[in-house]
Design a protein around this nucleic acid. Structure first.
Lengths: 282, 282
DNA sequence: CCTTCAATGTGAGATTTTGCACAATGACCG
DNA sequence: CGGTCATTGTGCAAAATCTCACATTGAAGG
């Protein structure tokens, strides 16, 4: 009988593409992944990967085996969720995934409230551009700005927030509307709703800074470099920024909460969901 | 992340019921099973088994987790089958399961023919009362006397064979029909078709030997103890036995061949299936 | 063409895991 | 009621596995 942990390593390698990435994902040394995959090849009698010095690639047989093994990984995650779901009471670890600035600006400041209500819950808050996978248990609860479409999730719309143009009061006073300079996202965000909305406002005017990082936009706008399209929860609370009204239809983005169905009834998870809903209400 | 091999040990324990049985099934020491299950309990934070000194029983949580983990085991078997199915050519190991006397009397004598036709195939022939599970890959190909009903199997009727009464020529000559002594199965086989058939013949006459083992019946009949209901392939080829005709409708049993769908197209398996079909024809 | 860098390969020491042997438990059976 | 037997618990030595460190490879960018 083949060692299931060998299969685990192989599946991770198949997904991650390199020994090193798989090793990072599994929290082991890359040599371990290499040896376990070799052991699986030994026990199946099949050559599963082509080892090249810069990257590994699956052989045709390896692809076929990986395909069949995917349900096994899904089952493993289901076991993990079942284990968490059977934990009674309001103790436990709950991982929240949210857009980075949302995590730091909206959620983090209110965590102290959750902490006082439910002292047994330990929160892990990850703000990442890359959407954490709930199916793979990279997070227990996720806040998203698009409606999640993954299977097996319970999804709920928590609310919405608006965007406006913001600049420093001094800058807005001294600058004529047609001469406004703009701060926008870089190419990686070109298709995001706020960037599209902003482009419609800019027209022929100048974009003086493009950055991926919202905090940088805030800092630049605050310093008087130009105006930026910022969420109200950021701009309105900043004394160094003032809204600049525009004719265009205001932009509003919905906030969605997603949780795996298997975890929805876990007390600690429910408490966190409730907390997040309250965060949005304020 | 929990070690998948721990899950493997736990699932096996859940199915086998005792640490020792699980250890035998996995081919490891019982202490290893105990330790790996303990590790799983540690990593999930749940108490999964009640350890008692005579047997272990799953806790409610353990049952729930085991339930969820079953698909994982099925997926693991699917991987194993996929690995075997990917093997090209006519080399490889093929395990055949068959009724014990069928294996020794019909199949084994002809294996040399298979061997000469396909030298690359290594056969493992297990004759067990307990039906080997094809889904669990305890065997690749099975011969059964009842139509298999498990899901996922490819089933084909290979043929049938008849039963008659046999005794030693000397015994049959000197014994009047109403005085015949009979050799039959013991209580464990009381409901088998051949035992039921035999009972209808015996009537009020005497049963002088009951045994589970067909070879023992043959030896006893050959020695002149009485008559036994034997398959033709056993009785007709034995110079020390002679048929004793009866008025009752002759008994015939069908022989079924079963193979998992995933393995049906494997060249080595196909060759074995063909060989078994030929065995039945003669 | 050269530098850089992340990836893979390889050996040795350290850690972990395993098997073994023996003890203890408690159910079954006469 | 006592013997028997399969099962589980435990400590220790052996074996297997993992990590670490370093060497090597080859693609990407200047």
């Amino acid at each position: 009988m083949t060692d299931w942990e060998d299969l685990h390593h192989f599946i991770t390698l198949a997904r991650e593409g390199t020994l090193s990435a798989a090793a990072r994902s599994l929290g082991v040394d890359h040599a371990t992944v290499a040896r376990r995959v070799a052991a699986l090849e030994e026990s199946t009698g099949l050559k599963l990967v082509d080892r090249r010095s810069r990257a590994t690639s699956l052989t045709a047989d390896g692809k076929r085996i990986a395909e069949v093994a995917i349900p096994m990984e899904e089952a493993a995650f289901a076991v993990g969720r079942a284990a968490q779901a059977t934990k009674p009471g309001l103790d436990g670890d709950v991982t929240i995934s949210a857009p980075p600035n949302f995590a730091s600006s909206v959620i983090a400041p209110q965590l102290v409230r959750l902490r006082s209500q439910h002292p047994g819950i330990r929160i892990k808050l990850i703000g990442e551009k890359r959407r954490a996978s709930l199916g793979r248990r990279e997070a227990d609860v996720a806040l998203r700005l698009m409606r999640p479409v993954e299977a097996g999730l319970f999804v709920r719309k928590l609310g919405s927030f608006g965007f406006s143009l913001y600049g420093s009061p001094a800058y807005l006073e001294k600058t004529a509307p047609h001469a406004l300079a703009f701060i926008g996202y870089d190419a990686s965000m070109a298709t995001s709703p706020q960037e599209v909305w902003l482009r419609g406002i800019i027209g022929e005017r100048e974009v003086v800074l493009r950055t991926n990082d919202l905090e940088t936009q805030v800092a630049a706008a605050r310093s008087g470099l130009g105006v930026a399209a910022l969420p109200h929860y950021l701009g309105d609370s900043d004394p160094g920024l003032k809204r600049f009204a525009v004719a265009q239809k205001p932009l509003s983005r919905d906030v969605w909460l997603a949780v795996h169905r298997d975890l929805r009834q876990v007390p600690a998870v429910r408490a966190v969901m409730e907390f997040l809903a309250n965060c949005l209400r304020s």
